[in-house]
Design a protein around this nucleic acid. Structure first.
Lengths: 139, 139
DNA sequence: AACTATTTGCAACAATATTGCAAATATACT
DNA sequence: AGTATATTTGCAATATTGTTGCAAATAGTT
């Protein structure tokens, strides 16, 4: 069984063409994707609304996760197998390359824990780092 | 001389009513503010465009800094004195309370450095943590 | 007080996001 | 396989958010 189908079935989602194609896009893509990236992808020509709803469904089912940005977009990236419905475990560092502008999940770089002031109880952490990625540093 | 005026003058900005009021709002506010927070503030009734431009000017002059979010908004918070024009030094952790929904700059909690894979050259880091803040934990 | 540079507000526009509802499609069942 | 049921999709309308040009208003300067 192919990976896309597998992921959808495991989440108990009905398998539709839109979900298959959008999920495929994530699997094939190296970096994170914004809503606009998906919409402008020529292979896919679904309604904007469908894309919004599909992304939302995927987030809710732990298939993709959101990456915070400061430019009024949300980036989405595939979760690794540990994420389940409603329980994200994306405590890895996200790297945004200033050069190629890709956003890469550094799955092996775990967000370090920090010491908080008295009374603060952390639940989830996100870390986003800007810089030059390993591909662009070569040029 | 009052603090608001002082900050504006030090940045070489002309002192207008809009800038004074918006800057005041940041000084008086505990947490970070979104554009919508400022616009919906009853005391302030400037044009949307003015608010956008004022925020942009403040960011460019190191008066406020942006905080990344995953909900299609940008949050803004006052910079501490170390920030200068074009040179932000906001490597502190931002805390978003799930309860009161305030975003708080933990100025004393510095974003820890992490070890990156070969070839990745980090330049700026941001860390956003969700949880329960010290005010809400009491209730 | 008058001049100059900057800032503001308006208007128009562009891009992004959300909702209700009918038609289309997927899954479950026989 | 064919049918019933539940889910998903696309369309239309609408709301929200962000941008640009330009004339009027305002701040800083002499």
């Amino acid at each position: 069984m192919n990976q896309t189908l597998d992921i959808l079935k495991r989440s108990g989602l009905s398998v539709t063409e839109g979900r298959r194609e959008i999920l495929n896009l994530f699997i094939q893509s190296e970096g994170a994707l914004a809503h606009a990236d998906i919409e402008s992808n020529t292979k896919i020509s679904f309604d904007r609304v469908t894309v919004y709803r599909t992304l939302q469904t995927f987030v809710e089912n732990g298939i993709i996760h959101q990456i915070p940005t400061t430019d009024n977009t949300i980036l989405y990236a595939l979760c690794k197998d540990k994420c389940g419905s409603g329980h994200h475990h994306d405590e890895h560092v996200h790297f945004i390359c200033n050069d190629c502008e890709k956003t890469i999940c550094l799955d092996d770089v775990i967000v370090p824990s920090v010491k908080f002031p008295e009374g603060f109880h952390p639940l989830q952490s996100a870390m986003v780092v800007k810089g030059i990625c390993s591909d662009c540093i070569k040029n």
